[in-house]
Each structure stands twice: as structure tokens, then as C-alpha cells.
Nucleic acid binder design. Sequence first.
DNA 1: GTCTATATTTTGATAGAC
DNA 2: GTCTATCAAAATATAGAC
Lengths: 205, 205
Amino acid sequence: MPRAMTARDRKELQIIRATEKLVATRGFYGTRMDDIARAARLPRPNLYYYFPSKRQIYRRILTGLRADWIKAFEQISPDREPREAISDYIRVKIEYSRKHPVPSKIFAMEVIRGSDMLTEEENNQIKTLTEEKCAVIEHWMNEGKMDRLDPRHFFFLLWGATQYYADFEQQIKSILGVKRLTTAQFETGVETVTQVVLAGCGLDG
Amino acid sequence: MPRAMTARDRKELQIIRATEKLVATRGFYGTRMDDIARAARLPRPNLYYYFPSKRQIYRRILTGLRADWIKAFEQISPDREPREAISDYIRVKIEYSRKHPVPSKIFAMEVIRGSDMLTEEENNQIKTLTEEKCAVIEHWMNEGKMDRLDPRHFFFLLWGATQYYADFEQQIKSILGVKRLTTAQFETGVETVTQVVLAGCGLDG
DNA sequence: GTCTATATTTTGATAGAC
DNA sequence: GTCTATCAAAATATAGAC
């Protein structure tokens, strides 16, 4: 039950937002406390009143992300039809890429670098949850509802294809020749990924 | 025509290799010249004899990568059958992820951050080449050889799915519960992606 | 070509007045 | 809660002897 936002909460959020944008483009080590202070319109020492260190600001960003990643996974539920569940999962994931490209990029860089800022426990939770969802995919395959394939690698494909729209946004914009991605372009992304994936595991028609 | 490797070339390569590994895990700003010197087993000031700055070392790494990315694209050739061409492209891309995870990660982080270390020209070349290959896909679709879909977004899906094996290697290892990915695991990746993509655009059977 | 010593700048963090 | 002044450590890069 979240209580009302105190003044402190607002200031912390202000710092978090400023840090996110900087870290997404310059990386953790490339972001200076001075840059954060300027972006958050606060004097540098003030940051230390709200956070004990730069690392702690960064940690707060990372923990926020996992919640959304886990939330999207709810779509893969055993009581649903695979066609609808997987379509919705693709849509939710690309939708998240559209709405929250910045945290997505930070999380991606963190994984690429080797997740040394995430605890063993946090990494394990992702593993456990994935195993649970792999069992759902296997359940659907056993019922003959979809083609047989390796569920873990199937998820790697889904994650790679959907997160691409946030993480490699720059590449997409460059190739589509635009400064900003429109809703229509995200929609084409959703449609293309959905079409290929559904037909790809025998869920079309 | 590359001439024989001089002593200087060898030293420069030694520095490049050391820098690659460090940058892949700590990022450009997180890598210190001192770290590079130690990893390359050279005194720090010696680095400056071979390279004018840290940035220049990094630039050299980036330019090397593009060559391989472009090379893989040769698979998508209009005189081939789409089934073979796309299968081979997937295989070559994942194979590259297996053999060169380090440069792949560096390139990925660079794109995520917004490619500010790559020149306008370098980014444009990728765009032009992609347009050329999109025309090949369209050619196959017009001949009724494969299902209709947006070729650009189709490539985004392929890139996301194949590069995942290099860039998000850590995530894959964590979920598969292994310290190192085996050849067999990469093979399962190739098979899963190939199966889904081929069936996904009407190229199976 | 190599490396010791060091200049210069920047950075994360703190002390302590208001 | 806020912010001026500042410390101590670390970093890039260079000078110049060998």
C-alpha cells in the first residue's frame, strides 16, 4: 500500500529521472554526479542528502525495471490459449519498449556488461520465473496446440526481437530514416514479430 | 594487400585485444588506461606511444566490427533461394556471436548509447546496405517465394534474435544454468531461430 | 622504443555554515 | 533541508631520461 508521496519521494524521483537519461546515453561510469546534479537542477552535495552514493542511485533504477519485466511475463499463463497469450506478450513487450526505452536500455547494458550490479538473488529470480513459463510452453506443446521447439531458446528469440525496439532504437531510427519512431512504426513492428512468431510455431490460421 | 605484420602492428593488436575485453565488461568510460596497460602488460605511458588517446583505441575496435557485420549480409543475395539464404544468414550471425562475443557486445553498447562514437558516414553505410537487402526480400515476396511482411522489421527481428546470443550471453548462461555455452547449445539456438523464422514467413516444407 | 616521474584535471564524497 | 568550500583519490596525458 503506497502512502502519499512525500517531498522527499519527489526529490528522489527527480534525481532518478535525471540519472536514467544520462546513464542510458553515457553509461554508469560515464555519468558524473555533477551531470546528475545539473540535470536534476540541484547542487551536487544535495544528491548526497538523498542517496549515499552514485551506485545506490543506479541500483534503485535497476530494481524498478525488474518489476515490469516480471509483470509482462504474466501473459504466459497456462489457462490461456497460446495464440492469444503469445500475441499479447509480444505486444506488451514492444509496448514497454515504446513507453520506457530509457530503463530498458540501462537494463540491457547492465546484462551485456555481465550484471555485476545485480545481486545473485535477483538474477536467480529471473531464472526461476523463466523455468515456470517454459513449463507453460511445454504444456501447450504436449497438448498439440503448438509446434515442438526448445522453450528457453524460444523465449530468447522473443526477448531479442521485442527488446530490440527499445535497446536498438537508434539503429531502427537510422534505417527507417526518421528522428522519432511513430506509433504506426511500432505497430508494424508488433505485426511483423507476431506474424513471424505465430506462424513460426504453428499458431496461425 | 596487407603487408607483413610489423612489430608495431603486433603491439597495437596486443593493446586492442586487451582493451576489447575490458570495454565489454566495464564500458568505455569504466575502462582506465591503467587497466589497459596492465592487461596488455605494458607500462601506461607506452600506450601513448602507439595511440594518441583512449578514444582512438576505442575507435579502432569499432571500425573492425562493421566489416564482419557487412560480410554476413552477403548471404542475402537475389540469386539464391530465400530458404537457403535466410537459414545461412541466421547460422552465420549466431556463429559470429559464438566466435566474437566481445566485439559484438561493444558494438551493441555503442548502438544502445546512441552511436555517438560512430561517424554519420559509418551509420549511413549500414542504412544503404540494409535498403539493398530489403529489396532482395521484396523481390522474393514478389515472386511468391515467401509470405508478405515488412522487410525492415523482418531484419530487426533477425538481428535481435541472432545477436542476442552474443550480447545477452550472460542472461542465456544464467537461464540455462551453465558457466559456458557449449557448441550444442548454440546449435539449439540456430535450430530454434531457423525453425521459427522459416515457418514464420512461409519457407518451411 | 621504453619507462620513471609528474603535471593537470576531474571526480566522488564530506564538513559544516546557514 | 540546502549549499559553499574543500578534501583526497584517481585519471588522462606528457616530459624527458635512458
